[in-house]
Design a binder for these strands. Structure first.
Length: 796
DNA sequence: GCGGACTGCTTACCT
DNA sequence: ACAGGTAAGCAGTCCGCG
C-alpha cells in the first residue's frame, strides 16, 4: 500500500495489509539507467569511473549489455547498475559524454513498481523470508482485481484562532479538531467549561487535542487520512502546532510528523505509513476536466456541486468571537466543525473510487494519482507499457528543447460557422473518441513516424500533412490507446447489467472514468512541450486527420441532402427537414461503413429545436454557442454567458429563462416580458446583491497586470481599505455606483459592496445577454418593446 | 479636444 | 504545467475630424 526507499536497508520498504493488519516488508531492487555508447570501446573507461555521494566513492556495480527498442529500432544498449538510487543522477552526469543516456530520472519507487509489475492498492501474492528480524520479499506479484482496497478511511478538519484574518500557525492556536468515518463523527476541543458529552470530547489544552487526534489515528488504524486542502493548510498547521506546544502528536505510522514538499507548482503533504488524500485536489481536477463547473472550489461549493447536499456555513470572521464568548455561537462552531469532517468524508467517499481506479490503471499510488496532472498520469501509464514492451522511454526535454517546442503552434480542429436562427429537426452526430481512434487507426506515434520498413508506395499511413506512419509495427501510444478504449467499452457493456447503487457498478464506473481521462489526454500531451513522447508531427497529423474526417461528414451530409448547419471538431449538426429519421440513421450507417475499424460516428441525439446566435456586431454566426432541446424536453446549452461564471447571476438567469421559453414554447413575447420584469427589478434596486456578483479568477499577481480590469480594480480598492486579499484568488465582485467613471473603478469585492449600479447591470449584463438571442432571431430593442406593454422597454 | 473604431489583454468557454 | 479554436468585455490607443 505504501512504497518507500530505505537507505539504511538499501531496499524498498513495502507496507502491506494482511488480514486487516499492516506489516512491513523489505525488497531489494537494483537502481539502473541506460547508456547507448557512441563507441563500445569505452567500456573499460566506464568501469573505472568513480563518483562520490558525500560519504564514499563508488564505481558502477555492473554494466550489462541489453537489447531494447529505442526510437522504434532494436538497439544494443548498456544497463548501468548502481549501488543505490542516489547514485543514478551522479553516474548519468559522469557517463553522458560517452553517448546518450536514458531513464535516469525515474523515481526509484516508481522504477521498482514498474519493473515488478506492481500496482499500489491492488492485491498481491507475496513470499517472505526472515532475516535480521525483518521480512524480506522473495517473490511478489499483483493479483488483478477491480475491488477497492480495504483501507480504513478517516476524514479530519481543524478550526483555528484567527484574530488577524488568516491564522498564523506560529502564533494562533488550534481550537478544535473534528473527525469522521463510516461509523461516527466527533469533535475534540478544549473550550472550558464544556463537558465531554455527545459527540464532543473536551480535553485540557490545545496540546491534548493534538495528542488525542494522533491517538485516534492509531486506534482506528487509519490508512487513508482525508482532508480538504490539508496539503497546504490542515496538516502543515497541526505539524507547526505540535512543535509549538511540544505535543507528542505523531500522526504517521512511523511516529513522524507530516512532511511538506514541492510537487510541480504546489505544496503537498504526506505522512509516514498513511496515505494523505486531499479531497481539494480531486475536486480541483474534476472541475478542471469539466466533470463539474464550480465557480468556487470551497468545500461547501464542492459539497453542493458534487453531492447535491448542503450544510450551514460559519463565517470565518466570527470564529474568534465564538471562541472568546462561548455560548450558542461556540456550540454552532463545534457543530459546524463536525459537519465539515462529515462533508469531507462524504466527498472522499465519492472521489476515492475514481482515484483508486486512476492509480490502478497507471500503476501509481493513491497519493500520486490524486495529485498528478493528466500529463503525469499519461506519462506514468506509458512508462509502464514501454517497460512491458522492452522499449526505452524518450528523455524529458531540456529547457532549450522546451523553448524550441513551444515556438510554433500547430493547426487544430475545424469549426464550421453556423447561420444564426431557430432550427427545427436537427440530428447531431459525434465521432466516438475522435483523436484516440485516429491515433489507433493511423498508428500515430513518435516511434512509427518515418519508419525504415514502410518506405515504398502505399506502404505507410500518410497523414493529410504528409507524415508517414508505419503499417507493420504498432506504436506504443496506439497500443496503449487501443487497450484503454477496448477495456473501457467492455466495462461499459458490463455496467449495463448492474445496479447503479452496487459497489461493483461504482468500481467499474471509476475504472471506465479513469480510462476516459487517459484516452482524452493523450492527444494533448503529444503537443505538450515537456512531455517525453512530444512530437509535433504526430499532433499535427492527428488534427489534420480530424479535419479530414469531419469535412467528409459535411460533404457526404450535403450530398445526401441535409443542411449541415454546424460542426465543431468531432460533432456535426444536420438538419433533416422534409426527411425521415430513418434517412438520418441510414446516413450514419453509410458513413460508418467507410471508416477505419477503430473509428465510429455515433448518433448523439435528435433535437426538435435549436437556437444558434450571431456573433457580436457581425453578420456571421457565433461558434461554440448554441442551445438545443431534445425529444424528452432536456435542454443542452453551450457557450452562452449563462454557463460562464464571469457573468452575474441576474444576467445568467434571465438569459436561461429566455432560452427555455424560446425552446419550449417559441413565445418571443413571453420572453420579452420576462426581460422587462427583470429590468424593472434591477431599476428599482430589488435584485439581491448576491445576484449581481461576478466571479473572475486572477491568474497572476495583481502587480503584474498591464491593465486595470474590474476584478483587479476590486482587489486594489479592497487592499486600499485595509483588507488582506491573497494573490491569485478568485475575485467575487459587484459593480457599484460610486468610485469613478470606469467600470474597474466602481468594482467592489462583494464583502465591501454597498449597492449595485442598475445601469451597468441593465446595459452591460442583462441586455447584451438576452439581445444576443432575441437579436439573432430578427428582433431588435425596438421590436421587443412593441411586444411589451406601454411601460415597455423604452426606459432602458 | 472629441468620439468612434480598433487593438491588446484577459478570462472562460467548447471539443 | 495536456492541445488549439473561439467569443467577448474592458482599457487603452489610434485616427479622422476640424
Amino acid at each position: 500500500m505504501d512504497v518507500n526507499y530505505m537507505h539504511a536497508q538499501r531496499a524498498i520498504r513495502l507496507l502491506l495489509k494482511v488480514d486487516g493488519k499492516s506489516i512491513r516488508a523489505y525488497h531489494k531492487h537494483e537502481p539502473y539507467f541506460y547508456l547507448k555508447a557512441n563507441d563500445p570501446a569505452c567500456l573499460e573507461q566506464l568501469k573505472k569511473i568513480q563518483v562520490n555521494d558525500g560519504e564514499k566513492n563508488y564505481a558502477l556495480e555492473r554494466i550489462e549489455p541489453v537489447q531494447r527498442m529505442l526510437e522504434g529500432k532494436p538497439t544494443q544498449v548498456w544497463k548501468l547498475v548502481t549501488a543505490h538510487p542516489g547514485l543514478v543522477p551522479k553516474f548519468q552526469d559522469a557517463v553522458r559524454h560517452y553517448g546518450a543516456t536514458y531513464e535516469y530520472n525515474i523515481l526509484f519507487t516508481r522504477r521498482y513498481l514498474i519493473d515488478n509489475h506492481l500496482t499500489p492498492g491492488a492485491q498481491v501474492e507475496v513470499e517472505f523470508e526472515r532475516r535480521n528480524g525483518k521480512r524480506w520479499v522473495t517473490s511478489i506479484h499483483s493479483v488483478a482485481t477491480d475491488a477497492n482496497p480495504p483501507y480504513n478511511i478517516l476524514a479530519f478538519d481543524i478550526e483555528t484562532y484567527n484574530p488577524s484574518g488568516m491564522p498564523d500557525p506560529k502564533r494562533d492556536p488550534l481550537l478544535m479538531a473534528s473527525y469522521a468515518d463510516a461509523s461516527e463523527s466527533r469533535v475534540i476541543t478544549y473550550a472550558q467549561p464544556l463537558r465531554t458529552e455527545g459527540f464532543v470530547q473536551n480535553v485540557a489544552s490545545e496540546k491534548d487535542v493534538l495528542q488525542r487526534l494522533a491517538q485516534v489515528l492509531r486506534e482506528k488504524h487509519t490508512d487513508v487520512l482525508c482532508t480538504y486542502n490539508g496539503d497546504v493548510f490542515d496538516l502543515p498547521y497541526v505539524t507547526e502546532r505540535s512543535l509549538q506546544t511540544k505535543a507528542d502528536a505523531h500522526f504517521g505510522r512511523d511516529h513522524s510528523l507530516p512532511k511538506s514538499k514541492r510537487l510541480g507548482l504546489r505544496n503537498v503533504t504526506s505522512l509516514g505509513g498513511r496515505i494523505h488524500f486531499d479531497v481539494y485536489n480531486t475536486v480541483y481536477f474534476l472541475n478542471y476536466i469539466g466533470a463539474t463547473k464550480l465557480a468556487r472550489m470551497t468545500q461547501l461549493a464542492a459539497y453542493e456541486g458534487l453531492l447535491g447536499k448542503t450544510k450551514a456555513d460559519f463565517p470565518k470572521d466570527q470564529i474568534v468571537a465564538a471562541w472568546d464568548k462561548k455560548g450558542q455561537p461556540l456550540t454552532d462552531l463545534i457543530e459546524y466543525s463536525r459537519q465539515d469532517a462529515v462533508a469531507c468524508y462524504e466527498l472522499a467517499e465519492y472521489c476515492l473510487p475514481l482515484f483508486y481506479a486512476l492509480g490502478k490503471v497507471t500503476g501509481t499510488t493513491l497519493f500520486d494519482a490524486s495529485r498528478f496532472t493528466s500529463g503525469q498520469l499519461v506519462e506514468a501509464l506509458l512508462l509502464k507499457k514501454a517497460f512491458d514492451r522492452g522499449e526505452i522511454a524518450p528523455n524529458k526535454p531540456t529547457a532549450e528543447e522546451v523553448a524550441e517546442r513551444t515556438a510554433e503552434p500547430i493547426q487544430g480542429a475545424y469549426v464550421k460557422t453556423p447561420l444564426p436562427g431557430v432550427y427545427e429537426n436537427l440530428a447531431v452526430f459525434d465521432f466516438k473518441s475522435l483523436y484516440p481512434s485516429i491515433i489507433i487507426s493511423h498508428n500515430i506515434d513518435p516511434s512509427t513516424l518515418d519508419c525504415d520498413c514502410c518506405r515504398g508506395e502505399g506502404e505507410a499511413h500518410i497523414s493529410p500533412t504528409g507524415q508517414r506512419f508505419c503499417k507493420k509495427r504498432q506504436g506504443l501510444i496506439p497500443a496503449m490507446l487501443q487497450e484503454v478504449l477496448t477495456t473501457r467499452f467492455a466495462i461499459q457493456k458490463q455496467m449495463k447489467a448492474l445496479d447503479k447503487e452496487s459497489a461493483e457498478y461504482k468500481q467499474l464506473y471509476g475504472k471506465q472514468w479513469a480510462l476516459k481521462i487517459l484516452a482524452n489526454s493523450t492527444y494533448g500531451v503529444l503537443l505538450y512541450p515537456r512531455f517525453r513522447w512530444f512530437r509535433r508531427e504526430c499532433g499535427e497529423s492527428v488534427t489534420a486527420y480530424g479535419r479530414k474526417y469531419i469535412q467528409d461528414v459535411i460533404q457526404k451530409g450535403e450530398q445526401a441532402g441535409f443542411n449541415v448547419l454546424y460542426t465543431d471538431t468531432d460533432s456535426a449538426f444536420l438538419q433533416y427537414n422534409g426527411k425521415t429519421k430513418q434517412t438520418v440513421l441510414d446516413f450514419g450507417k453509410a458513413v460508418n461503413e467507410q471508416l477505419p475499424e477503430s473509428m465510429q460516428l455515433e448518433l448523439e441525439d435528435f433535437y426538435p429545436r435549436s437556437i444558434f446566435v450571431g456573433k457580436k456586431a457581425e453578420e456571421t454566426g457565433a461558434k461554440k454557442k448554441y442551445a438545443s432541446i431534445n425529444e424528452q424536453g432536456k435542454i443542452k446549452i453551450r457557450g452562452f454567458e449563462l454557463v460562464r461564471r464571469d457573468w452575474s447571476k441576474v444576467a445568467r438567469n434571465t438569459q436561461r429563462s429566455v432560452l427555455e421559453i424560446l425552446l419550449k414554447e417559441g413565445d418571443v413575447k413571453k420572453a420579452a416580458e420576462l426581460v422587462r420584469t427583470t429590468l424593472n427589478e434591477l431599476k428599482d434596486g430589488k435584485v439581491p446583491l448576491e445576484d449581481c456578483v461576478i466571479y473572475t479568477q486572477l491568474k497572476k499577481k495583481v502587480a503584474n497586470y498591464e491593465i486595470k480590469s474590474p476584478e483587479v480594480g476590486a482587489v486594489l480598492h479592497a487592499r486600499k481599505s485595509g483588507m488582506n486579499v491573497p494573490e491569485n484568488s478568485m475575485v467575487a465582485y459587484v459593480i457599484g455606483k460610486a468610485g469613478g467613471e470606469a467600470v474597474s473603478e466602481r468594482a467592489r469585492l462583494v464583502e465591501l459592496a454597498k449597492d449595485y449600479d442598475a445601469d451597468y447591470y441593465i446595459n452591460n449584463q442583462v441586455l447584451p445577454a438576452v439581445l444576443k438571442i432575441l437579436g439573432s432571431l430578427g428582433y431588435d430593442k425596438d421590436s421587443i418593446r412593441l411586444k411589451g406593454t406601454q411601460k415597455g422597454l423604452g426606459d432602458w
